[in-house]
Design a protein around this nucleic acid. Sequence first.
DNA 1: TTGATTTATTGGAACGTTCCATTTATAGGC
DNA 2: GCCTATAAATGGAACGTTCCAATAAATCAA
Lengths: 350, 350
Amino acid sequence: MASRAKATILDIAREAGVSKSTVSLVLQGSGLIRPETAVKVRKAIEDVGYVYNRGAANLRKAHSNVIGMVINDLTNPFFAELAVGMERVFQAAGIVPFIANTAENPVRQEEVLKSLMEQGVAGLIVSPARGTTPGAFRRIEAAGVPIVFTMRRLPESRIPVIAPDNHRGAFIATEHLILKGHRRLAFFGGSSDLVVYQQRLGGFLEACETLGIPIADRTIVEGETSRKGGIACLETALAAPEPPTAALCFNDAVAFGVMLALRKRGLEAGTDFAVVGFDDVAEAEHYMPALTSVAVDTAGLGERAAHVMLKMIQSRTTRAKDHIGAVSLVVRESCGQSRNTRGAGMGDAA
Amino acid sequence: MASRAKATILDIAREAGVSKSTVSLVLQGSGLIRPETAVKVRKAIEDVGYVYNRGAANLRKAHSNVIGMVINDLTNPFFAELAVGMERVFQAAGIVPFIANTAENPVRQEEVLKSLMEQGVAGLIVSPARGTTPGAFRRIEAAGVPIVFTMRRLPESRIPVIAPDNHRGAFIATEHLILKGHRRLAFFGGSSDLVVYQQRLGGFLEACETLGIPIADRTIVEGETSRKGGIACLETALAAPEPPTAALCFNDAVAFGVMLALRKRGLEAGTDFAVVGFDDVAEAEHYMPALTSVAVDTAGLGERAAHVMLKMIQSRTTRAKDHIGAVSLVVRESCGQSRNTRGAGMGDAA
DNA sequence: TTGATTTATTGGAACGTTCCATTTATAGGC
DNA sequence: GCCTATAAATGGAACGTTCCAATAAATCAA
């Protein structure tokens, strides 16, 4: 049982009185071996406390079933939900994805990617850190390892992206606010070096444009994409002479921050100031007041990303179509009386 | 650049006009090679787009600088914070830990552990899933791979544990409530199959005992360790004829749920009902009202666990002392007027 | 029986590294 | 100049698996 040196396939072979090749075949579940032999071998495997050495196997096989998931902020529950979706499909495929966190740090990201590559991953699902340099993935692409980006894309890259329809999400949310009668609107949180930010802000601006909100009545406050950032955004915005009466927030974390800051001032989200979030994390529903938010089907995006990855690996390609996920506005209490409207979404896109 | 078949050490050797051994030496940063040679080799490495094959190396070396982190609920921000602490120290040691999620499912945990073992991990940091069978780690122990548990322990196991002083944390929190004048107290959330639960509940009960709260005035409601669970607990408790006026919650998530449920009933945490959380996650401070909670120095525990692991690996042992982390009560607004008291903690223990 | 066919099993080479024991080059001492 | 000591570079075996080609055993047709 507590054999010191770790057992190999040869130990099993000796124990079971067969050749190493036979053991290998059994290990791979080949139908070529006689059932009784298989049983004998399996018993030996148990007896010697064998653990399969995937490194050695990969050396010969040249494709590993390891998939790396590189995430820029594990602390944001959104990414945890995304990860959960992916794991569901990988689990079904008998694959254990390894998650690594870059903490929004491109240098750390470099290390993480290097390590994953050295480990011989079959594919990489990445939400790139802010400030990732354009060439960061060139080596990996050159090595022929499939990559898919989730949620975020790099400015020029040809790597497939799985993301929600940010522009449309922001558009319908803004539209909702305007139709509720708000005329002075704000966009809170995020920073312009992110492509997502530009998309969401773009949707916001287009809605303003289309529905006749003059530029002077639009407030844009960049900030951290966290509760803290949201608090700061609201403070800044309310300090203006003609403050906004409603805000679309870059994500739910920012929205939660805004609601807290409101309450600190004795104001109530929904009645005194309308706030809409983005992502619709699980918490949004249970908040008080419940947060109106753009639902992006987080887990679904995770599943989709995993499926795309699986297909890429299987078909030995490094290309795939982008997937822009449908979004919908979930109207709750944080922007006025709670009618149960649901905005429309959309399907696949280039 | 885009060389199809992946480059090996021999390709580099050819390119640089040296032997594979020399390349290997350069790769390991050996001081034995002439600096100019090293430069030449490093250039060749760049040129051919080489990626190190750690699997092959481990085959020969037999120890692998990969560390696995097995977490039972990635969705709980507490674990994300824990992970962040660990990563800090691993990063400094040039190690990239791989995180895997078990989603509180022992079967999935089994798969995850198997996969990690096959990958040849040097060590495992684990927060075991609920319902883990006592023998689940025997194989791994037998293989001589160091394990440390964080936060949770298994009933009988000899595996070292890094965890906060749950008993004391619950004790000082309960004491605080009693000194505030509360006489009917509740303990909300968690379930009795967890050792942590027993420790926290134990602290609660001891405080009640010591400070003279009769059994009839103690309410214990088990439940999910989430917001949803907290909501349910409060509903149950308030339905009683003589409902409690204060509650210690199993963790902050439960506490948040309780506060939401209070608000839904038009009650305010702090004035109408006192609530104390456990873990002191980042969010506690920014909540409204700010949550009084038992701080466990989450990131610090993570760092500690990582250090212990590193030491175990280095000294080739599979044993280590438990570490029970100091706790302190951070008094905020959720249990009455906000005096800024801090309870005392404690240091190492057996 | 014999040869052909199918079914099970096996030895050996290969995968990309490390590391030991050697060899070769360089320098130092006289 | 030669011998020794040191520095730098090298060839080959080994690590634990897979997979191909080959062998051995069993079955069948004639």
